[in-house]
Each structure stands twice: as structure tokens, then as C-alpha cells.
Design a protein around this nucleic acid. Structure first.
Lengths: 318, 318
DNA sequence: CTGAAAGCGCTAACAC
DNA sequence: GTGTTAGCGCTTTCAG
């Protein structure tokens, strides 16, 4: 991996490092002819500046860490992908890692990233132990959708209730009487409770709750109970779970949405493939990513929180 | 982002940089007591070595570039995820980027990665123009599943025919007479042709071909034609396409697999969710990832090709 | 055992 | 308009 350096370029152009540097950076104070020669030479030799040297010198970099969780499967990966796209658009280069499982791994990771990474975006859920490590580490951490309050880290929070509220409102308007919820994800419970509070006195529905742990198969398994509960609408904590129920309905001749209105959560791309296609609540991915860029470009380490609303997407299942 | 350096550690421990370095690296030739003092101090102050300086000095790094394509959606992202996991297990840190759309972007990317990245794994399809750039760039490129032959880059190729052959064999054994294929992905055509060649004289099926471009909706749209074609089995170039047809079948009362046996390609996780669950051909992701690690650790830039077989996974749709 | 010092490639302040 | 040079933090050779 031998590579052309500034020094070599200077020698070949029979000039100084500084002049080469000027030419390459397009800085003023250089004879136009000399500039042209240098630029031509650099292009011919395929000069690429050494990023390690540059970062060392400047004490900063345009590398941004991304810590991606492994829960949520496809949805997670979709968010990741969008984020990478956005970062690259703005000239940042993502270093990717899985969310460290413990404090030791977290330290190990940032030892390896030290000197490269001034900003790290965390897409997964952190253990408190790991969060405590992050709060003390040099990079500015941008935590997406992290429940636990932090010091010294920015949090971008997603308000589940807005989209859920719109969904419930739609259910009530279209004559549904009893809503079931299936799942045990705290953020969904909170969102649902908040939505119910805001709808109190305006539109009211009966409510029943079912536990669920595994995603797809629990959605399938809960089918019998759910149909027996008298509910005519159901909110699943995840789209995968809802899709599981859709499969149950398909196997058992239950008509969706006639017999049961179904709303999921995540806006999983496979929602469009299901039979019928799944109505859901979508994350504000774009808005969150825009904010991430804003925080990075702002160059200050704030510990502030920012909240983004979700929205209801109505397809065929309600 | 002020950070403890070796020098500072040396001053505080009232010794030299070299001794601190020895202590931290666990090298011999250092008084045990002094070693203990240094180690304690380093832990207290949270010393993290500067990776930029280290890379500059050593002229190498444990950063590995990943260029991820954006075609194939979820399947792509799944592969990416597995690869990251594997790299981290082996102490490498991935720099993630989308596959550059043109030569200019490719150069821009590697200008930014220069000095960090000695190995780059390419998960997407490259334009010849971009490939030509890569062949001349310093890093060792490991191309996954790249049709075009290259010089100076390693290629890990996936043999589509093995899994497809097993699938067709199964279809023939279970009494199917006429196979349709739906799609226009060259790699699948090649795989199918090879499978047919190998089965010649042993098991033979009639064959009919349908074009398809878009994934899910084309699978749905082709339903009518497909049913009218007299085929009793169908191979879709992608699982998404097959899932589209499954939706068509569901809407039109077609029984799967009784009326039509369906095989997809990709082993998409959502295959398990479909009604019925989709039989498919799976990529050898594990084997490919193991090879990537092997190539990286080998430290030689070879231009060799390696071939990995796919396998047939039989679920409910055949 | 311990330490001084060169030098990786780059940037930019500071001469001339 | 042009060139010299210090120094970012680290590794490692070489001399004490």
C-alpha cells in the first residue's frame, strides 16, 4: 500500500510542500502556471491525501460513529441505511458498529475509534452501564429514541402517541367499539396511554390488553384469544406481530378489516406485501436524520432533548 | 475533545514515554512496580490511544471498508449486518458507505478513506467504470457476487445453480410437469440454465418464462398469465416477487402449493411470515463471511475467485 | 532496565 | 509569491 505523498509531489514538481498544498487546496498565493503543473501531476499520480495524517494534525475528522442495535430486525436496518445515506450526502463517513453489550466492549470500541470519531449516533437501546461509559467518553453522543435520561448526550426522542392517537381516532370514527393491544413494549404502552388521555371525553373505546414477547409467532398465537375477546380493532406493538395475526386470520377465514381492524407499528416495508396490506404508525426517520446532521454541524456538545412525532398510515387493514 | 496522551501519562508517572508504552503494551523490560503505577494512572485518567496517530505511524489499520448496495432491500441489509458482526468478532472495524454511483464518487470516497482502509468489501453491484477505479486504488477489494471478472480484486462468487437444482429436483420428484420462471435477473437465469443442464436426461420439465422488473408488484401482476400458462410450478427470481404472487393467489382463491408450487430466491426473513411460508434458495452468507476474514488476515492481495454454493430450503409453498 | 529521538503525512504559522 | 518548519500522538530503534 505505497502511496503518493505531498513531499513526493513537491519533489517531482520541483517545488515545496507548501505550494503543493496550496494548489491542492485551491488557496490563493500561487503562480497560476505552477498551480496547473502541480494539479496535473497530482491527477496523474493519483494522489490521495492520507486521512490518518490529516486527522492527527487537525484533531478532528469527518468520521461519524454509528452504533446499531440488533433488535427490531429489518426496521432497524432500514433506519441505519437512511442515516448512512444522509451522512454521506453531507460529507460525513460512518463507522459502523453493533451496540456494545457491556461497559468493557464499549470501552474497547472507543479505544479503537479514538481520534477518529467526534460524533456517535446510537440507534439501539443501551444498557445503563454502557450509557454511563458513554457519558464520560470524549465523543458527542446522539442517542436516538433512548428512554433513559442522560447528561452530556443529545437525545432525539420519538413521540409514539401522535401517530397512535390518529389511528385510534380513525378507528373510533369508523365505528369501532373495543380496542385490543397486543405487546409489551413500554414505549408503545406510553404512547397508547397518552393517546387515550388526549381522547378522553372526545372519543372513547373499550380496551383489553394481551401480552406478547416474540414478534411474528406471538402475533399468530394470540389470534384465538383476540377473536374471543370481543374486540373489533387491535393495535400491535410491532408490524411483525400484526403480520403474524394477519396470517392467523388468513388461516382461519377471518376477514380483515371487516371482522377486525388491525394497526401495526413501524411502517415495515413488508406491510405493503401482506394480505391485506397493513395500516401502521410510521417513525419520523427523515426529520430525525436531519436533526442529526444539524447537531453534528453545530459543533457544540449539548445535552438537550428533541421530540419528533410519529404519524398514522392508513392502508387496507382498518 | 481533549484527551490524555502518552506524553502526559509519562509526565504524571514521572517517567518516559517509552516506559509508559511498555507498560500499556505489556512488553518486557520494565520494573514491576513502575509498571503497576503507570497502569493504575492510565486507568484512572481513562487513557485511550489515538487511532489516527497509530495508523499514521504503522501505515495500516484495522478498519475495513464496506460498500453496501441499495438493491435488494432487506436482504442486502441482512447480509451487511452479518458481515459487521463477523468483522467485529475478529477485531476489525467497519467503515460503511453506499456503493459509489460513478468514478468520481468512488475517488472522493477513497480519498476520505485513504490511510485508514486497506481492505474494502463490496456488497453491491459495481458499474464497470467504478470497478476500473477500484482496480487501481491501493486497498485490497473483496467483491462479493460480482459478475464482471476483475484483475487485482478478490471475488467471492455465489453459485445459484446448486440450490436451484435441488429445488427443481424436488419439484420433479413430487410430480410437477411444467416450470415457469418469473424474473430477469441474469444470475438467476444462469443458475437455472446450469441446473437444467445438469438435470438433462435425469428429470425433465417443460419451461416457460415471464419477464418481471419491479419486485413485489410484478409478482402480483404476473399472476393471471402465470395461472393461464399451464405451469404447475414457478420459480421467482426474488422472494419479494414470489410474495407478490402469493398475495395474488390469496386474493384469487388459488391454493398454494396444490395448484401451484412456488420457489423464491434469497431466504428473506419475511418468507416465514407469508401465507403459506415460502420455500426458497438461501445464500451461503456464513461461508462467505468466513472467507472474507480469511482474506483479510492473509495480508496478500490476490486476484483469485472463490465459489460458494446456495442451498434449497423447503417450507410450505412447494 | 530506561530514555531520547526519529519520523509517519499533513496543516498552517511564520519567515523571506 | 514561495519555502521552512513545528508538531499532532504514536511506535520503535538505538544508545545509555
Amino acid at each position: 500500500m505505497t502511496r503518493i505523498t505531498l513531499k513526493e509531489l513537491a519533489e517531482r514538481a520541483d517545488t515545496s510542500i507548501r505550494s503543493v498544498n496550496r494548489a491542492l487546496k485551491g488557496q490563493s498565493g500561487l503562480n497560476g502556471k505552477k498551480r496547473a503543473v502541480i494539479l496535473k501531476l497530482a491527477a496523474e499520480l493519483g494522489y490521495t491525501p492520507n486521512a490518518a495524517a490529516r486527522n492527527l494534525r487537525l484533531q478532528r475528522s469527518n468520521f461519524v460513529g454509528i452504533l446499531s442495535g440488533n433488535q427490531g430486525g429489518e426496521v432497524f436496518l432500514r433506519k441505519l441505511y437512511k442515516l448512512v445515506e444522509k451522512l454521506e450526502e453531507h460529507g460525513y463517513f460512518p463507522l459502523l458498529s453493533l451496540v456494545p453489550p457491556d461497559a468493557e466492549q464499549a470501552l474497547r470500541l472507543f479505544r479503537n475509534w479514538a481520534g477518529f470519531v467526534n460524533y456517535a449516533v446510537v440507534l439501539g437501546t443501551l444498557k445503563p452501564e454502557v450509557l454511563a461509559v458513554f457519558e464520560k467518553l470524549p465523543p458527542h453522543f446522539i442517542l436516538i429514541d433512548q428512554e433513559v435520561p442522560t447528561e452530556n448526550c443529545s437525545r432525539l426522542l420519538i413521540d409514539r402517541s401522535t401517530g397512535i392517537k390518529d389511528g385510534i381516532l380513525y378507528l373510533a370514527r369508523t365505528g369501532r367499539r373495543k380496542l385490543a393491544r397486543c405487546g409489551n413494549i413500554p414505549s408503545r404502552r406510553l404512547g397508547l396511554e397518552k393517546a387515550f388521555r388526549e381522547l378522553r371525553g372526545i372519543r372513547e373505546l373499550d380496551f383489553v390488553h394481551f401480552e406478547a414477547v416474540d414478534d411474528f409467532s406471538d402475533g399468530f398465537a394470540v389470534g384465538g384469544e383476540l377473536m374471543a375477546s370481543g374486540a373489533d380493532a387491535v393495535f400491535f406493538d410491532t408490524d411483525r406481530r400484526a403480520l403474524g395475526f394477519l396470517k392467523y386470520a388468513w388461516k382461519n377465514g377471518i376477514k380483515i378489516p371487516e371482522d377486525m381492524a388491525v394497526i401495526g407499528f413501524d411502517d415495515d416495508p413488508t406491510d405493503l406485501q401482506s394480505c391485506p396490506s397493513l395500516s401502521t404508525v410510521a417513525h419520523p426517520i427523515e426529520a430525525v436524520n436531519d436533526k442529526i446532521i444539524e447537531l453534528i454541524e453545530q459543533h457544540t456538545r449539548s445535552g438537550a432533548d428533541f421530540i419528533f412525532p410519529t404519524r398514522f398510515i392508513n392502508r387496507e387493514s382498518v
